[in-house]
């Protein structure tokens, strides 16, 4: 007990010591850049990185040193400091051809170049999520913006086809989730045993995770995530969800098999 409260106190002190200069630096960056690049600061502050207090202050990506600040923020390794681990967002890009090329060649790239006009052989995180210096990483989810980024390297018709195929694939995945939600809602309405409903609800949660893998697989171009972690996984979870509901229905219709759950 005493040891843990000491640790908490130490963490608090360390945190205060570390955050004080960061906050000052923050005021310094924003104070100057608000007049120099008002659109950039505005985009950042309304993005997922912004907010009050900001979730990712300038120095989180750019580092504390003004020299080389832009190049530092362009490297995917910088993004991975927060978005790392073996998360789906990272895996989908790592497995894509974009990610493969970046991993094989990125160490030798000149990261001082701006993130535009195909200046990099393949996009890392920032090329798309901070394209042409944009400071709202979520902006590229808008298909028109995505299209503009892809066109740096790919032909217009190819980009159209890829984006529409991704949207169509995602729509199919959403149909699977909708089917699961409707089935579970009906099962709840029918008053099936709580254990069956709880099992079905767990499969529905799994489907939400599968749909995310599908979405990120589409966005980052990982076929493995589109199919095995996405569509095929959704198929499995959907039929398991139905199986859980069906079992509840059967147990209610013919009780007596409870001993085997």
């Amino acid at each position: 007990m005493r040891r843990s409260s000491m640790a908490a106190l130490a963490a608090l002190l360390l945190g205060a010591a570390a955050s004080a200069p960061a906050v000052r630096a923050e005021g310094g960056c924003v104070g100057c850049h608000r007049t120099r690049d008002p659109a950039l600061v505005a985009a950042w502050s309304r993005s997922a990185h912004g907010g009050s207090p900001p979730r990712a202050p300038c120095a989180a990506c750019h580092g504390p040193d003004h020299a080389g600040a832009a190049a530092r923020a362009r490297r995917s390794a910088t993004c991975l400091e927060c978005h790392g681990g073996d998360g789906v967002a990272v895996r989908t890009h790592r497995l894509s051809k974009h990610g493969v090329i970046e991993r094989l060649e990125g160490l030798g790239w000149d990261w001082a170049r701006p993130l535009a006009r195909g200046a990099y052989r393949a996009p890392g995180c920032a090329y798309c999520h901070a394209h042409a210096g944009g400071h709202d990483p979520g902006a590229v989810r808008d298909p028109d913006r995505a299209r503009a980024v892809c066109l740096d390297c790919h032909g217009p018709r190819y980009v159209t086809r890829i984006l529409e195929a991704g949207a169509a694939q995602l729509a199919v995945g959403r149909l699977k989730l909708a089917e699961a939600e409707a089935a579970l809602a009906r099962a709840r309405g029918a008053g099936l045993p709580a254990a069956a409903l709880a099992a079905a609800a767990r499969h529905l949660e799994a489907m939400r995770a599968d749909l995310r893998a599908l979405r990120l697989g589409v966005a980052h171009h990982s076929p493995d995530d589109q199919w095995w972690h996405g569509q095929a996984a959704l198929d499995g979870a959907l039929l398991r969800l139905k199986g859980a509901i069906e079992r509840g229905r059967r147990q209610r219709a013919a009780p007596g098999a409870e001993g085997t759950r």
Partner: peptide, 17 residues
């Protein structure tokens, strides 16, 4: 479990549900 469910249905309903 599938066998137990099938048997319970045979007992109670006289058929597989």
């Amino acid at each position: 479990r599938l066998r137990a469910l099938g048997e319970a249905e045979q007992r109670r309903l006289g058929r597989r549900l």
